[in-house]
Design a protein around this nucleic acid. Structure first.
Length: 299
DNA sequence: GGCCAGGCTAGCA
DNA sequence: TGCTAGCATGGC
């Protein structure tokens, strides 16, 4: 049994109960046992990994379970991915110190104490999910993602059954626009998703190289592709690459959350959002995540 | 039934 | 450079 010890506060149970998007077939969440299972693509292998929460919020544990259990060569990469996915290294205490001088934030901090951003396991999957999420309500976007997963028809053995795997770039590259159109994708969205998969499958971009680039350079690299605009890059920096100081100021959800948080009579536009966010540097990603969380109940 | 949703592109001034 | 109509579907 592989063990990760995040620094506290870290509330795994709350994280599982409050995913920003609806749970997906490729990520099995069981809030009762506080467990999360997902198949990770690592070096052409697909490995189902189960993460269980343990310990306390102040002294948390993450218990990893996967075939080969610590003995396989992918072990350290699995640890890395899980730490990234659950933001175990994020400086949440410093974030609290930064925003707690603003009384408006206190209810949010109290309700979500120990919550860390949940990131995507895989850069390709992350971008595809974000493209699909453009402009659509979260619920419908999640339904479209599920339909795409169904088309991949890829599974890995898990327990007594099979665990669905998010389609690879090659699998999506082989689809036709018409196939996605039949499943309620708009023509444009079908093109964006499939064209992006083809770019990756053809090796015209290596997403892994983006990990080492500064935010601005990632933006420059990605913005040139059709269907990828500023908002999409910012969400990719957040959910894919885990950058710490991103504020997608054009995001309608962020704008609504700020209007609600401060009881504003109008919805702030991007310029005003950027100005407000100056106060949350260098933790604007955490601020964004908490703002999004404030939209899904409890507050 | 109409407006809106975790936007983007192409076309136009 | 900056602005906006059109996209397309489901949720509320």
């Amino acid at each position: 049994m592989d063990v990760i010890r995040p620094t506290g506060p870290f509330d795994f149970g709350t994280m599982l109960k409050r995913p920003l998007s609806r749970p997906s077939k490729v990520a099995v969440i069981d809030p009762e046992t506080s467990s999360y299972t997902k198949a990770l693509r690592i070096n052409r292998r697909v490995i189902p990994v189960t993460v269980r929460g343990g310990g306390t919020v102040d002294q948390p544990l993450l218990l990893l379970d996967y075939p080969g259990d610590g003995m396989i060569e992918e072990g350290s990469e699995i640890r890395n991915r899980i730490q990234q996915m659950f933001s175990t290294h994020v400086q949440v205490t410093e974030f609290y110190a930064t925003v707690s001088s603003d009384p408006a934030w206190m209810p949010l901090l109290n309700a979500l104490f120990g919550l860390r951003p949940m990131r995507d396991a895989d850069l390709f999957e992350s971008m595809v999910r974000i493209i699909i999420g453009q402009q659509l309500n979260v619920q419908f976007a999640a339904a479209l993602v599920e339909r795409l997963i169904d088309m991949g028809e890829s599974f890995v053995a898990w327990g007594d059954g099979l665990l669905p795997v998010f389609p690879s770039p090659e699998q999506i590259a082989r689809l036709t626009y018409a196939q996605l159109r039949e499943r309620s994708f708009s023509q444009r969205k079908a093109e964006y998703v499939i064209d992006f998969a083809r770019i990756v499958a053809d090796g015209k971009i290596d997403l892994e190289t983006l990990r080492g680039m500064p935010d601005e350079q990632v933006h420059e690299q990605l913005i040139s592709f059709r269907g990828i605009g500023r908002w999409t890059v910012e969400c990719f920096l957040l959910f894919g690459l885990g950058r710490q100081d991103i504020m997608p100021a054009t995001d309608i959800g962020v704008q609504n959350a700020l209007q609600k948080l401060y009881g504003m009579e109008y919805r702030p536009k991007d310029e005003e959002v950027r100005n407000m966010a100056e106060a949350w540097k260098p933790f604007r990603s955490l601020a964004t995540y908490y703002l999004w969380q404030s939209l899904i109940g409890l507050l």
